[in-house]
Structures are given as C-alpha cells and as structure tokens.
Design a protein around this nucleic acid. Sequence first.
DNA 1: ACCCTTTTTTGACTTAAGTCAAGGCGTATT
DNA 2: AATACGCCTTGACTTAAGTCAAAAAAGGGT
Lengths: 229, 229
Amino acid sequence: MELINQIAAIPLFEGLPPDQLKDLARIVVTKVIKRGQMIFSEGDEGTGFYVLISGRVKIFKLAPDGKEQILHIPVPGEPFGEVPVFAGERFPAYAEALEDSRSLFFPRSAFVSLVKRNPALTLNMMAVLARRLRRFTTMIENLSLKEVPGRLAAHFLYLSERKEGAGELRLDISKNQLASLLGTIPETLSRILARMAKEGLIETVGQRQIRILNRAGLEALAEGGKRLS
Amino acid sequence: MELINQIAAIPLFEGLPPDQLKDLARIVVTKVIKRGQMIFSEGDEGTGFYVLISGRVKIFKLAPDGKEQILHIPVPGEPFGEVPVFAGERFPAYAEALEDSRSLFFPRSAFVSLVKRNPALTLNMMAVLARRLRRFTTMIENLSLKEVPGRLAAHFLYLSERKEGAGELRLDISKNQLASLLGTIPETLSRILARMAKEGLIETVGQRQIRILNRAGLEALAEGGKRLS
DNA sequence: ACCCTTTTTTGACTTAAGTCAAGGCGTATT
DNA sequence: AATACGCCTTGACTTAAGTCAAAAAAGGGT
C-alpha cells in the first residue's frame, strides 16, 4: 500500500519492523492543507504530531501587532508539532502552509505506546528533538549576538552546506518569509541584500536564487569579524 | 548509599527500578566545579551529559567580541549538556559554574543502553527535551518580538509563577548575568529597572530582590500592549 | 496579453538600545 | 578599618534597524 511506503520513507521511522509500520498506517491520518491554511494555533491542545510529506509549512510565533517570527520550516519527511506529545500542554507556536501541502498526522496515545515498545524509534525521536534544540540554540545566538547582515550571511552558508550546489543556492521561501525567519523585516532585508551585492559578496539571480561570490567574506560577516560598510 | 539516593531524587530517573539505579550509580561520576570554572566548551566532544546537584551553572553562547548569551540556567536536579548524547556531534554551547557546584556526569554509551531497556526513562528524557524546546521557542519569541522592557517583564512573571511568593521574588543571578540571559547589556537593564520602578510596576528590595507592585502592568508590558514612557 | 494582487525596493525619518566613559556602591579580604 | 575588586548606575553620544509611505517589479488567473 502506498501509505506504508510513505511511512517507511520517513527517517524517523527508519528500521521499524513491517508489522509496526502497519500499526502506524492504521492510526495515521493524511491531512491535505491549502496554501495559507492554518494547521494548528499556539495554545491548541496537542493531540498528536505531524510529518510533512510534500509542500512547505512554517512554524512561527505571532506578536499582538501581527509581526511573525518563524521558528522552523520543516523539510519533507520531517516531523513538526511534536512538543506537546512529550511535554504535554499546548502547541507552543502556530503552523501554517506556505504552499499546498500534504502531511501525516499521528495521534499521540497510539504513538506513545509504540515508542514504549521500540527503542530504535525512541532514539530516532530523541535525535529529532536534540537536533532541533541545536538549531534553536543557533537561532538564539544569531538573534542576540549577530546583526542582521551576519544572520543573513550565516543563513546563506547554512543553505549552501545542505545543497552543495557550488555556490548557487535557491531560497525556497519569499523574502518576506525570509525576513521573518531571520528576525527582521522585508525593508531591512532588501537593503542588506543590496549592500551584499554591491560589495561583491553575492549576486542575485532572479527573485529566488543567490550566487555566492565571496564565501570567505560571508564567513567573516557571519562570525562578526567584518561588517558591511 | 548516598549516591543512589541522589540519583533516585533526580526527576529524570523517577520510577526507575532499584537495580537500574544501581547500574547508574556504577557508571556515574561526581564532578565538583568551582565558581568561574568551565565545565565544557562549545565544540567539545560530548561524551555524556550532566545533572546539576547543587550550586548554579550557566549554559551560554559566546560571541567573538566576548559578549555572552545565556541559553539556560538549570535548577538542581535538571540535566544539561544532553544534546550531543542524542544528536551526536559536539556541545552546542559553553557551560560554566556561576557558584561552587556539584554535578553528576553520566557517560553516553552506558546511558544509551539503559534508555534502550527502559521506556519510562525514555519518556522522561523526551519530556526534558520537549520542555527545553518550549522554553527556547519562548526565548526566540522574546528576542525577536519583544523589546527589552517586555522581556524583563516576562521574565519577572515567569519567576513569580514558579515561586508563588506573593509578588516577592529573588533574582538568583547577578544583574550582569540577567542582562546576558535577556539578550541585552547591564547598562540597558539598569535603566529599564529604574524606569519600571519609577512607573510603580516594581520595587527593588536590596540588590537581588524584586517586589511586583503592578502585575497587570507587567503583563501588559510583556504582551506588548503597553510601553514604558 | 492584461488586470489585479502580492512582493520587493527605495527614501526620509524615528527610535530603542548599544558604546564609551566616569563615578558610586557594596561586600569581601587581609 | 582600610583597601580593593567586582557590580551597578548614570550621562552623553552613536548607530542599527525599525516605521511610514510610495513606487516599481513580479506573478497568477482569466
């Protein structure tokens, strides 16, 4: 069955025996979400967690004045909304689809009982949580100790590490969203991109592509060793 | 034995059968740390994790210019340095004692094999990680979406929730450290405390005690609904 | 191809908070 | 008791980045 293959392809469930995959398939719910649709809100009861299958979603905090801070943009195959499964209480943030998306929803209790029976699954889930913690420490560091140019440079370097595409990288979110991910606003982001280009650090190719021209320069910016003039 | 009692008193190990507590006692190492001493550095190989027994430590990021951002100040009984145990790689931050402290060190491999055999321990550890994630999302929100007065107000409210001490609360770190926890600098913190006092929101009692005079006012500040004039 | 919407850019201005520097306070130590 | 050290506060100044406003550019749907 198609569903089982989808589940088996999720890194979190790597190495699960076929019968437990079948158990999962029995409890899972496929959710189709349209661009702009809210998946859950901060404060909602967390009755389970999600795994993104396709599309793109953002996990974010919302200030009363409407400003957003994006916490996380899961890649396909990655879980999200898992905090309440283990810590109880409510979702700590909002989740909304940036594009038409599909995800699998795993109800809490069925999943927890599976965890109890399966050490490998347990360790995988702890690895997910621990990696997310590591990302968040970096995010806190960036927000507190780097200025916007440094954060942007660090983000480009981060993207280029995962793509390995020879200094050519695709932003797969709009600049509005990127600003919100970096803890700034579109106007500021726009100005800093222009400055980076003027200094020959990067080159923008169309609206969603960046070419890194001076990697060492970006690294110096990200480390705080240099600044844009 | 004294050590076993100490281990049994750690919330993370709640409900472990006596023989597994004995296993833990066999692998654990007690570490005594003097005020100012570094426990581990960012980038160090993480060969295990710690549980704070007494004293006080800070987990923090360090910028090249020497500025610090504190990520976390564990309370006694709480684990720290656990990310590399589950996510591999290195410690994502520094740990240093703020006061003379004692902690227990649990080597990674022995602990992991124990986890594999014990679902309750597993779920406890996942709860620890998930709660920390929740704290970090709040920290990111505060850094990005609140100004310093709002962060400080939120911090006071957070402390007063855990102490229940009728609006009287003790800062158990210096104002220098508090500034570093809130993502600002001592000068700014000092000015904002003065403004809060002038507006009758709080009253400072000695150097490390704060009395909340207007809780609703603090809440409005923390939510961003009001600002200091 | 055109209209309408959303995204992005640019300009002028404001402001929160950082820097630098000096002085006062407090408490711990000999 | 005096000294010394770290901690905290205050003042004057600078600056990074936010706000507000408007125009330009890009995309999507009919």
